[in-house]
């Protein structure tokens, strides 16, 4: 890991509606040019962590009450989401969310809203997005509400790319998609990271896929980081195998042999 990480989250606490404590001290690092994954079940706090970084919490009455978030050595908790996008952090929200009444191309152009470097540069990036997602090029004049789920997911990743980000906060790109598509999208994310140098913080439930492309991972449970390590280490961790990868010591398990008791986790949650 480079001496100064691109993004550094230090021990943040997030409270919703002044009472509901959702994150209880989460710390993580994203190195420049890395893919870091955030694993966890529903309600573990993955999305909240991402929204705390992109400052979309306030709209949901959430607030970072403790800790700091630094981006390239600078505190960013107080910056609004528009400024953050201009600085290079874009979130791709869970559940796709394209602008349904806009055509695919218009969706991508809205992604370039914060750009001030001229039409030609935007046009170049549009072609870049189309080269990564050829299916979007075919659909460019179709309203985004009418394209398939997989295409919508590609569209929102493409839309984020149009802002020329250094860091994309990618929230559950696999949600509700066929395994084949999930694989395709993860491959593109990996290529974007290698070829365009975009760093990713990837929140996922699909741990198998996430650990395949990530360099480093954090496991989040009940608003706390319970485990972190290199992707390879995590893949070999017995608990991660059991609880997140669906493997047991004996390899892939059949539902016929499911026991009524569970292996105990080795960490405190």
């Amino acid at each position: 890991m480079s001496p100064q990480p691109l993004l550094q989250v230090n021990n943040i606490e997030v409270v919703y509606d002044h009472v509901i404590l959702v994150l209880k001290g989460v710390s993580l690092h994203v190195p420049e040019g890395g893919i870091v994954t955030l694993l966890g079940a529903n309600g573990a706090g993955k999305t909240t962590t991402l929204k705390a970084i992109s400052n979309l919490l306030r709209a949901e009455r959430g607030e970072v009450t403790k800790g700091t978030i630094e981006y390239r050595g600078e505190r960013i908790e107080h910056l609004d989401s528009s400024t953050l996008v201009r600085r290079g952090i874009v979130q791709v929200m869970e559940g796709r969310r394209p602008f349904g009444h806009l055509t695919c191309e218009e969706n991508l152009l809205v992604g370039a809203y914060t750009r001030r470097d001229g039409r030609a540069a935007v046009q170049r990036d549009l072609e870049m997005v189309y080269s990564y997602f050829p299916r979007l090029a075919e659909r460019r004049h179709v309203k985004a509400g009418y394209v398939s789920g997989g295409e919508q997911q590609m569209l929102v990743i493409g839309r984020a790319l149009m802002a020329r980000p250094r860091l994309i906060l990618l929230d559950e790109p696999s949600m509700g998609l066929a395994p084949q598509l999930v694989k395709e999208i993860f491959e593109i994310v990996w290529r974007l990271n290698k070829e365009e140098g975009v760093s990713f913080l990837l929140a996922e439930q699909n741990a198998t896929m996430a650990l395949r492309i990530a360099d480093y991972g954090y496991v989040l449970e009940n608003g706390r980081v319970v485990l972190d390590g290199d992707a390879a280490t995590l893949r070999e961790n017995e608990d991660v195998k059991e609880f997140y990868l669906g493997l047991s010591a004996a390899g892939r398990r059949s539902y016929r042999d499911v026991k009524h008791y569970k292996r105990r986790k080795r960490w405190l949650a």
Binding site: D80, S82, V85, R97, F99, L102, E106, V110, T114, A163
Partner: peptide, 16 residues
């Protein structure tokens, strides 16, 4: 129009 469709998503891509 993007804001009209989904204002949170619009915020996320930097539309103020």
């Amino acid at each position: 129009r993007a804001v009209a469709d989904d204002h949170e998503a619009a915020m996320a891509v930097g539309v103020p």
